[in-house]
Simulated scan of single mutants.
Amino acid sequence: MDSDLTLIIGLVLVILSIPSIMSAFSEGHTPRVASVVIIAGGALVVWAITQKPGGYSLIEIPDVFVRVVARFIP
């Protein structure tokens, strides 16, 4: 798997788990599934950063996102 794709999948997982965590805390439940998803997303992000020589900068992330989406949209 490409490190750009891994980075984007990890970031999407982390971002999508935030509402689940907020919902669980507001209802007084423990966010078990959201915690697992955020750990998995974080692991994907860390793996992507370590696999790309030089890593990623914050300025690069929108360009990487567009490149990854452009590969899958005909």
Rank of each mutant, 00 (worst) to 15 (best):
D2T: 09
D2L: 10
D2V: 04
S3L: 03
S3W: 07
D4Q: 02
L5R: 02
L5G: 12
L5E: 08
T6W: 06
T6R: 08
L7G: 07
L7T: 02
L7N: 01
I8M: 04
I8N: 00
I8A: 02
I9V: 14
I9N: 07
I9P: 04
G10S: 03
G10Q: 00
G10A: 06
G10N: 01
L11V: 09
V12Q: 13
V12C: 13
V12E: 09
V12I: 12
L13C: 11
L13F: 08
L13I: 07
V14A: 10
I15L: 14
I15S: 11
L16K: 15
L16H: 12
S17R: 05
S17M: 10
S17E: 08
S17V: 04
I18C: 08
I18K: 08
P19K: 11
P19G: 13
S20K: 14
S20Y: 11
S23Q: 14
A24G: 04
A24W: 00
A24Q: 04
A24D: 03
F25H: 05
F25R: 10
F25M: 05
S26F: 01
E27A: 07
G28W: 06
G28K: 00
H29G: 00
H29N: 02
H29I: 00
T30H: 12
T30Q: 13
T30E: 13
P31C: 01
V33G: 14
A34W: 04
S35H: 12
V36M: 13
V36D: 05
V37K: 13
V37T: 12
I38D: 03
I38C: 09
I39P: 04
I39Y: 05
I39W: 08
A40M: 09
G41W: 03
G41S: 06
G42N: 01
G42E: 01
G42Y: 01
G42A: 06
A43W: 08
A43Q: 02
A43S: 10
A43D: 02
A43H: 02
L44I: 00
L44Y: 03
V45N: 02
V45E: 03
V45I: 10
V45H: 00
V46S: 09
V46P: 10
V46Y: 13
W47G: 06
W47V: 12
W47E: 07
W47Y: 12
I49S: 12
T50F: 12
T50V: 14
T50Y: 06
Q51V: 07
Q51F: 08
Q51N: 11
P53V: 08
